[in-house]
Amino acid sequence: MVTTERRMDDETTMKQAVRGDDRALAILLRDNYSLLYRYMLKVTMNKAMAEDLVQETMLKAIERIGTFQLRSKFSTWLISIGTRLYMDEMRKKERERRWRNAEQAMQSIRFDAAMRQDEWPEALDALGEMPYEIRVPILLKYYYGYAYEEIAKWLDIPIGTVKSRLHNGLKHLRKELSQ
């Protein structure tokens, strides 16, 4: 009952936001902020880049809210925007060079974990060291549970490529972690 009411509230807020209500849009952005930030952090493995992309995703969402057709959850829409922005950024050679110091970015994340007295597992290092074209579909499929079709659409690649990247990525992870 509570879930149904919540869903109706969300739907009403989404409809208001699409009609141009800034407050409704602000509520949706706030409610999904943590999820988006955590997703971008896992995808980029780079705190500074994740923060930049969260901001860019929010600006893009504000710009495009009128085109949101309520066919998916608002969080899914944000994740699709964030994924596309990240892939576009990585495809741009110049920007890629700017973020090339991936090891430094990973060290910063490890440092944050150490400050919180959390253990930084080898598995996350292995995930961070994978090429972004493989890490992104792996997270979207196995961690967030999205369908092959959605992932293929967001990454602008054929479904077969998604499947092979998932298969090879997992094989690589298995190999790395069994050594």
Binding site: Y37, R38, K42, A113, R116, D118, A123, L124, A126, L139
Partner: peptide, 15 residues
């Protein structure tokens, strides 16, 4: 391999 570590990391991140 990674799922539970990611979940733990996710939970520890509080933006």
């Amino acid at each position: 391999l990674v799922g539970r570590h990611l979940k733990q990391w996710d939970d520890s991140v509080t933006p």
